[in-house]
Design a protein around this nucleic acid. Structure first.
Lengths: 207, 207
DNA sequence: AGAAAAATCCCCCTTTCGGGGTATGGATTC
DNA sequence: GAATCCATACCCCGAAAGGGGGATTTTTCT
């Protein structure tokens, strides 16, 4: 038996989800909430196995709700179910602790499967979302850094000083300085920490 | 009709995969290869829609194969099918350009579904793999940094100088220095770039 | 209420960085 | 054969960072 809670502001959707869940053997809806605030409170009390969470609600956003719930009840699996599919929102939701992400046109059978999968330690995602997530790993080193410069940047990203890099690469510290000057110019940054930050954010180096 | 190629060193597995695919309407196996080297060559010629790629082959590894193929034929979807499921290998494969990742105990029906899904722009993953991938987004601040220190670290990770951080937080530069001293002690680092590197690697901050 | 932790501020001093020039040999390209 | 890019190396100098102290106030926890 899998217990499910629903956070969703649209009454029609909320009720049909509850009907679907309660109408399926081994699924039981133990709470429906029309706001994140009520949801958080109720879910802490009911301790469902899985939460279906909408994102774009009036009041507190679903993302915030995920953060709070994950903070207080890390064992509960939170599955996002929403119309929104902006890249930013998808990643925010996952970073906040969602275990999966479905868009709202998911057919009932698949929705039930996804709930089951969440509860079994999976991470169900709609087709497009899954591809988005996977592609986020793929590196596009779209800079014109030379090989040597990339090498130096990699060392910077390990927190090395000019002197250490010079020793590692067996070149003079002055040359390291020169490479770094060029890196800064190309990345349009003005300090080591900015360069490291940019390198990580744009996946310019692989560690 | 979806055309598929298989790279797999075990003859039994290779042949039964080919049989499965050719025995299914709308699926057509256009090449089977027992090594990555042969696979790359053949796949560039045959231009299949989807490649089933093993990882642990003798000779060139599947990861390398993915990199090369994605470099030359970015349109072809590469679906990893392997027994290996080390975290490191999963992420390496996805970073190299795989569009999905299945472990070898996947039942035939699901395998066919996954091929279809790959071709439709999805990213099929086995249950455990999907969770692994999703969890990689989640921040685990298992450090004893205080709120303020985390805040300062976040600014460091944007490449800010002491002075800029002081202005942003409306505190004296000396206080910023003090926080940073404490951060360095707790993270066991000795420079901004090291701190930023560690913060990114351990996902201590969210940007 | 009292203790502990966190956040704030100040001083000293040395090392490292970052920006400015300049130069030379080798490889590649045109 | 000239032009360009890359990697190497050096100088100067001021600003920023980092390590060592110490001190006060505010918050938090018990």
């Amino acid at each position: 038996m899998i217990t499910v809670a629903i956070v969703e502001d649209d009454q029609d959707i909320r009720e049909s989800l509850a009907l679907l869940i309660n109408g399926t053997p081994n699924f039981n809806c133990v709470g429906t909430y029309n706001s994140v605030e009520k949801g958080v409170k109720g879910i802490m009390k009911e301790q469902p196995d899985v939460v279906l969470m909408d994102i774009g609600l009036p009041g507190m956003s679903g993302i915030e709700g995920i953060k709070i719930l994950k903070e207080k009840e890390p064992e509960i699996d939170i599955l996002v179910l929403t119309i929104q599919s902006d890249d930013r929102i998808v990643f925010d939701a996952l970073c906040a602790g969602a275990c999966g992400y479905l868009v709202k046109d998911t057919p009932p059978a698949q929705l039930l499967e996804a709930i089951q999968e969440s509860h079994e330690g999976g991470a169900p995602m709609s087709t497009r979302i899954a591809r988005l997530v996977v592609e986020s790993f793929q590196v596009t080193p779209q800079t014109n850094l030379t090989n040597r410069e990339t090498e130096v940047l990699t060392h910077l990203c390990k927190g090395k000083s000019y002197k250490m890099i010079a020793d590692d690469l067996c070149i003079s510290e002055e040359t390291v300085r020169r490479h770094i000057k060029n890196i800064y110019r190309k990345l349009e940054v003005h300090s080591k920490s900015e360069a490291v930050a940019k390198a990580f954010k744009e996946k310019l180096v692989k560690l």
